[in-house]
Design a protein around this nucleic acid. Structure first.
Lengths: 109, 109
DNA sequence: CCTTCATTTCGAATTATATTGAATTGAAGG
DNA sequence: CCTTCAATTCAATATAATTCGAAATGAAGG
């Protein structure tokens, strides 16, 4: 994880429709959801959703798999774990909250 | 946590200078950093930094305390914990990855 | 009080993001 | 093949974010 990837991930989530889509995918788990199902749930044009899914996908937050004629999207939990780790990296190193490089606060997340 | 607050937090972090400032504050821990020190570290105009700190502050990700003539900023770890919880809320409920409403994947974060 | 210093607010210009309809791609089935 | 359907890419427009200099605020100290 680096700044560029982190910003791509955070930007991808920092938008009404994309956040809603992502959270739906989190709830759907490994079952996933089709692009069409998400577009209908959000009430936006397919082309708009496609734009948003592309950003989530580019950031690595979701994966894509074709099933017959539909595209199934799924949340990638490894990506969000990496993002949170990056945000809290070397937590409290300035005032030494612990012996290890990983802060206690980070571990309780 | 709701959509509006989550988007404010994610937008606040989804920017080069703000992400850098936030991560510096995470590393600084309870010691915190002054606005001036952050502006100098990032190499941007004080007015620009002020704009960015206001967004982190409005989102609740950082707190502010006056010490004599300088303003000390600190990362608020409760805020980021709440954000991550919101992102992974009801994880995998569609395919029942566990008995509880909280997903195993969420707990391993 | 008057000055100094750290920081913020304001205004204006530049740059990036979000939206949709129309056209395109890619996969199935008659 | 030719049609159908799901989804994406493209082009154009509307909206929002970022930047900095200049001016304003607010707290300390002479």
């Amino acid at each position: 994880m680096n700044d560029e990837t982190a910003i791509a991930s955070l930007s991808a989530l920092a938008q009404d429709h994309r956040l809603s889509a992502y959270r739906r995918l989190v709830r759907a788990g490994k079952t996933g959801l089709s692009a069409g199902a998400i577009a209908e749930a959000l009430g936006i044009a397919p082309s708009s959703l496609s734009f948003h899914l592309a950003q989530l996908s580019q950031a690595g937050l979701v994966t894509q798999e074709r099933q017959h004629r539909t595209l199934i999207y799924r949340a990638d939990f490894g990506a969000i774990r990496a993002l949170v780790g990056f945000l809290l990296e070397n937590c409290c190193e300035a005032d030494g909250c612990g012996a290890s490089a990983t802060c206690e606060l980070e571990q309780t997340l």
